Structures are given as structure tokens and as C-alpha cells.
Computed example of a mutant assay.
Amino acid sequence: MTGRPARKSAAQLQAACDKFNASHQVGAAVSVELDSGEVRETVTTSAAQVLSGHTAVIWLDGIRGCYDLKRVTALKAAKA
């Protein structure tokens, strides 16, 4: 069978959000792969959450709309 990967259940999506939120506070430094393929560094402006029961997303500073959590990578915090 080819084509789209199987959809994640609501519980799996929520678990992905919970895992991200447990490790990263709002304001965490991240990189995101934009629709254009460009990778941009920014910070989170919300906690990760399930959007309309189908996608784990997060909102980012300076970027319009939310992005699929799969396209977001947390950056290591700079040491003081």
C-alpha cells in the first residue's frame, strides 16, 4: 500500500504536544521548516496544541499562522 501515512489518533497527537510542552516552555528557541523549504530560527509564542483534532501545531514569533510540530526543532539553549 502506498500513499499517505496513516493519520495519528487524537491521543497520539496530544502525546506529541505534551512531550514537547514538558521539555520546552513558551519562548523556547526553535527552528522551523517553512512552506518554501527555508529553515528559520525563531521562538515559540504558545504551547503546542492539537488543531481541530488532526494536527499537533505551535505558533511562532514573526511567522503568520501555526506550524505542524513535526516541522519544528528545538534548539539547544545557549550557555550563560
Results as ranks from 00 to 15, higher is better:
46 S>Y: 01
46 S>P: 00
47 A>D: 13
47 A>V: 10
47 A>Y: 12
47 A>R: 14
47 A>F: 09
48 A>I: 02
48 A>D: 05
48 A>H: 09
48 A>E: 02
48 A>P: 06
48 A>N: 06
49 Q>M: 07
49 Q>P: 00
49 Q>L: 03
50 V>G: 00
50 V>L: 02
50 V>M: 03
50 V>S: 01
51 L>D: 12
51 L>T: 02
51 L>W: 12
51 L>F: 12
51 L>M: 12
52 S>V: 07
52 S>T: 08
52 S>L: 11
52 S>I: 02
52 S>E: 09
53 G>H: 04
53 G>V: 04
53 G>W: 01
54 H>W: 10
54 H>C: 08
55 T>D: 01
55 T>V: 11
55 T>F: 01
55 T>I: 11
56 A>I: 00
56 A>P: 07
56 A>N: 01
57 V>R: 01
58 I>C: 10
59 W>N: 14
59 W>V: 04
59 W>L: 08
59 W>S: 12
59 W>T: 10
59 W>P: 00
60 L>Q: 04
60 L>A: 02
60 L>V: 04
61 D>L: 10
61 D>S: 11
61 D>V: 05
61 D>F: 06
61 D>G: 06
62 G>T: 06
62 G>E: 07
62 G>N: 06
63 I>K: 02
63 I>E: 09
63 I>V: 13
64 R>H: 08
64 R>L: 07
64 R>I: 10
64 R>V: 11
64 R>S: 13
66 C>S: 15
67 Y>K: 11
67 Y>M: 09
67 Y>L: 10
67 Y>H: 14
67 Y>D: 11
67 Y>S: 11
68 D>W: 05
68 D>V: 04
68 D>G: 07
68 D>M: 03
69 L>H: 06
69 L>E: 09
69 L>G: 06
69 L>I: 05
69 L>R: 08
69 L>T: 04
69 L>W: 09
70 K>F: 08
70 K>G: 10
70 K>R: 12
71 R>V: 03
71 R>F: 06
71 R>K: 08
71 R>A: 09
72 V>A: 06
72 V>T: 06
72 V>M: 03
73 T>E: 15
73 T>N: 15
73 T>A: 15
73 T>Y: 10
73 T>P: 02
73 T>Q: 15
73 T>M: 14
74 A>P: 15
74 A>W: 06
74 A>K: 03
75 L>M: 13
75 L>Y: 06
76 K>P: 14
76 K>Q: 14
77 A>K: 13
77 A>E: 13
77 A>G: 11
78 A>V: 15
78 A>E: 14
78 A>L: 13
79 K>R: 11
79 K>L: 09
79 K>I: 07
79 K>W: 04
80 A>M: 05
80 A>R: 07
80 A>L: 09
80 A>Y: 02
80 A>H: 04
80 A>C: 03
